[in-house]
Design a protein around this nucleic acid. Structure first.
Length: 322
DNA sequence: CGTGTTTGACCGGCGC
DNA sequence: GCGCCGGTCAAACACG
C-alpha cells in the first residue's frame, strides 16, 4: 500500500513486462522474459525485442515470442502492479528440482524512476540511513526514498529464495499486508556491495515468487553458494553491461549473470536511464540449460559470448552467431 | 569459529 | 498528531 505510489511509478515507467518464451523447451522454462517495453525506451528499433535485444539475442526476437506472462495469472502479484518483491530466481538447483516443469517464470522488470536511478547508487546498503540524509540534503519529503535501479520479476518456484550466483544474507522478514506470505529481505554478503533483494510469494498465486532486486553488484564475480560450488555456474567476468544499450544477455543467463548486470560499475551509470538503463534480472536459469553443456564447453564459449551461452542452447547460439 | 537465519524492536515515511 | 506499515537493525540462535 504505502509502496503503491512507488510501484505505480515504476509500473508506469516500465510497462508490463513482456515475457519471451524461452528458446528452450518448456523444461527450461525458467528463462525469463524480459520486458520489452522497458528496454524499448532505449532505442526505437526495439520492436518487440526488448530485453532480448539488449542481450544480443535479436535474432531470436525476430519472431515475436509468446509472453510468459501470459501464463501468469494477471492478478499474480497484484497484476499490473509491480509487486514489491522481485527476486531473481537463480537457483538452478532449486529450479531444476522443484520446478523443472513449472519453472515458467515471468519477469517483470521494474526500474526506478529516472530520478531514482540517478540517485540510486550502490549505497543502497544504507539506503535507509542515507535516505534520510538524502532527503534532507536534496530530496523533499514528498519524495519517497528512491533507491537504485530496481527490477522485479516473478518466478514460479517452490523455493522462495532462488540462487542467482551471489551470496545473500537474510536480514529481515516481515509480514506483508494483504498477503499471507511474509516478505524476506536479503542483502548481498559482499561488504562492498549494497545490492538488496526482496522475496515474497504472490498472494494470488503461491506458486509465484516475486523477487525484487535493488541496486547493482559492485563485485564482478558472484559468489557461488556453498552448497552449489560444484554446480557448473559459469560466471565470467561481468561484461560491462552497457546500460541503456543493447547488449544484455537475455534469457539464458544464469542468475550469476544477472548479478553482473546488476552490477554495472557505477562508472558506467552516469546517465542512467530508468527503464532502459537497467537490465532486468535474469531469469533463473534452469539447470537443464547447463546440463546440456559441459562446464568446459561453456567456459570456452563464455569467452566469446560471456554469459549468454549458458542460457542459450547451442542451437540458438548458432543462429545467434549466424 | 565463521556464516547465515530467526525474530522482536526500532525507525521513518505516509495517509488520515 | 496519530497510527499503520514497510524496511532495517541487531542479538540470539543454528548449522557446517
Amino acid at each position: 500500500m504505502t509502496e503503491k505510489p512507488e510501484e505505480e511509478m515504476e509500473a508506469s515507467s516500465t510497462v508490463a513486462a513482456s515475457s519471451i518464451q524461452p528458446p528452450f523447451s518448456s523444461q527450461t522454462s525458467s528463462v525469463f522474459p524480459f520486458v520489452g517495453d522497458l528496454f524499448d525506451a532505449d532505442g526505437g528499433d526495439t520492436d518487440s525485442l526488448g530485453f532480448l535485444e539488449l542481450l544480443g539475442l535479436r535474432d531470436l526476437h525476430h519472431t515475436p515470442p509468446p509472453l510468459l506472462f501470459d501464463h501468469l495469472p494477471p492478478a499474480a502479484g497484484r497484476g499490473a502492479e509491480p509487486p514489491d518483491g522481485g527476486n531473481i530466481p537463480a537457483t538452478p538447483s532449486s529450479i531444476s528440482t522443484s520446478s523443472s516443469t513449472e519453472a515458467a517464470t515471468a519477469i517483470r522488470a521494474l526500474t526506478a524512476s529516472p530520478a531514482a536511478a540517478v540517485a540510486g547508487d550502490e549505497g543502497s546498503e544504507q539506503q535507509q540511513k542515507t535516505s534520510k540524509a538524502e532527503e534532507e540534503g536534496g530530496k523533499k519529503k514528498g519524495q519517497k526514498r528512491q533507491k537504485g535501479p530496481r527490477f522485479a520479476f516473478k518466478t514460479r518456484s517452490e523455493v522462495d529464495h532462488l540462487e542467482d550466483g551471489y551470496r545473500w544474507r537474510k536480514y529481515g522478514q516481515k509480514a506483508v499486508k494483504n498477503s499471507p506470505y511474509p516478505r524476506s529481505y536479503y542483502r548481498c554478503t559482499s561488504a562492498t556491495c549494497g545490492v538488496k533483494k526482496r522475496v515474497e510469494r504472490s498472494s494470488e498465486d503461491p506458486a509465484v515468487v516475486v523477487t525484487t532486486y535493488e541496486g547493482q553488484h559492485t563485485h564482478p564475480s558472484p559468489i557461488l553458494p556453498r552448497g552449489h560450488a560444484h554446480q557448473p555456474l559459469l560466471i565470467p567476468p561481468p561484461p560491462p553491461p552497457p546500460i541503456g544499450l543493447s547488449v544484455l544477455p537475455s534469457m539464458g543467463l544464469s542468475l550469476p549473470i544477472l548479478g553482473s548486470y546488476l552490477h554495472p560499475s557505477p562508472a558506467t551509470l552516469p546517465d542512467f536511464r530508468p527503464a532502459a538503463a537497467v537490465p532486468p534480472p535474469l531469469p533463473p536459469l534452469t539447470h537443464n540449460a547447463f546440463s546440456n553443456r559441459t562446464a568446459a564447453e561453456a567456459e570456452a564459449s563464455s569467452r566469446d559470448h560471456g554469459l549468454l551461452q549458458d542460457l542459450i542452447p547451442s542451437e540458438i547460439r548458432k543462429s545467434d552467431e549466424l
